[in-house]
């Protein structure tokens, strides 16, 4: 089949979410590996934990984030604003003292630094909210036991592979399965 047609087909297929809870991180890692072998795409798997685990600990694919881009944009905007304000105020209040230039750089540097800092801070906040998709309207599938050490494996499954995936998860020691959609 033509690749793009295949993609459309996959997207229009009815998907539902399955949350598998594991009481042991090793079992969750094995289950994650197994479902990927079964054909579930990395983008359809979310691993939920009560504390940060090292990247790749569950054999998951590295999902890149763009948080680092945000402060750079913010810093650039903050710096530009600061330069605009400092140059603007000095030019609109031109005091020539001791033959020094109207645009005095040492204090301008302080404001530029402050503006850059503030821009970077504000955009970092925006960045983390955006990248974490917070706040969301609904929590989706979740279980409070995840904060107590359980590992949650959240999968997007289709009608085709639903049964096989659930069986696989149970085989790898899932304590409980929850479904939505």
């Amino acid at each position: 089949m033509i690749p793009w047609l295949n993609k459309i087909r996959e997207n229009v297929m009815v998907k539902k979410q399955v949350l598998a809870l594991f009481d042991d991180a090793a079992k969750a890692a094995d289950a994650n590996e197994a479902v990927m072998k079964e054909g579930v795409k990395p983008g359809d798997i979310e691993i939920m934990t009560g504390c940060p685990y090292p990247e790749g600990a569950f054999g998951e694919h590295d999902k890149p984030h763009r948080v680092y881009r945000f402060p750079f944009i913010g810093a650039l905007l903050g710096f530009s604003m600061a330069m605009l304000i400092t140059a603007g105020t000095q030019l609109s209040w031109p005091l020539i003292t001791g033959g020094k230039p109207i645009l005095s750089l040492p204090p301008m540097v302080i404001i530029a630094y402050e503006g850059t800092l503030l821009g970077a801070v504000l955009f970092t906040i925006v960045g983390v909210l955006f990248e974490s998709r917070l706040p969301r309207v609904g929590l989706g599938l979740y279980d409070d036991r995840i904060t107590e050490g359980y590992i949650g494996l959240l999968l997007n499954v289709t009608e085709d592979n639903d049964f096989a995936i659930k069986k696989l998860l149970q085989k790898h020691g899932a304590q409980e399965l929850k479904e939505e959609g």
Binding site: E46, I47, T49, G50, P52, E55, S132, L134
Partner: peptide, 13 residues
């Protein structure tokens, strides 16, 4: 609100 502890959320945080 809506914190679930996904690996992406931990990473971004």
């Amino acid at each position: 609100k809506s914190w679930r502890g996904t690996q992406k959320q931990w990473k971004a945080r």
